[in-house]
Amino acid sequence: MNIFRLTGDLAHLTAIIILLLKIWKTRSCSGISGKSQILFTVVYITRYLDLFTNYISAYNTLMKIIFVVSSLATVFLIYFKFKATYDRNHDTFRMEFLIIPSIILALLIRHEFTVMEVLWTFSIYLEAVAILPQLFLVSKTGEAETITSHYLFALGSYRGLYLLNWIWRYYFENFLDWISIVAGFVQTVLYCDFFYLYVTRVLHGRKLRLPA
């Protein structure tokens, strides 16, 4: 564990909590892509199957359980409890366009051809692009609530911090995993346009509104 991974994990946790609190307090999930949340749930479930096979640490186990349970709770809030507020007309990105290529890529480019390893690799690839339905929804409506912007910023920071963690691990632990690094890089790049708007607008007290 190093400072980048820890802050990355905390940013990830913060993002999840912000989203759950936003939905719960406002009793509304408007502006949130249910499809991105379903994809993240698929990511956590396929990646954390090792909860049943390997024990790493209490921290590792606890965080994995939190990610799986909170993502399931988020999906439940969007599709059941507050479904009347769900923006289904704007949330039109096709999930299969992300899931199917991720499956194919995981079958082709992975470390070992075992069920657990292919599922882990699939989860890495899918996570890299899982935010696209959410970004698509924001671009369709042309704006995002400030709290949604904070959520996206925390979620985007997490993989960026992991990139620093991988640089650290390469130098100090001689650890290198190209699959994580390339996918993490793609994931972070997808947020760049949003990061720019966040820093130039939201941090200056304005709402995130896309340029016409």
Partner: peptide, 10 residues
Amino acid sequence: IRYTLLKDEL
């Protein structure tokens, strides 16, 4: 370069 199948990252 070491790669481990035991995934300690989240």
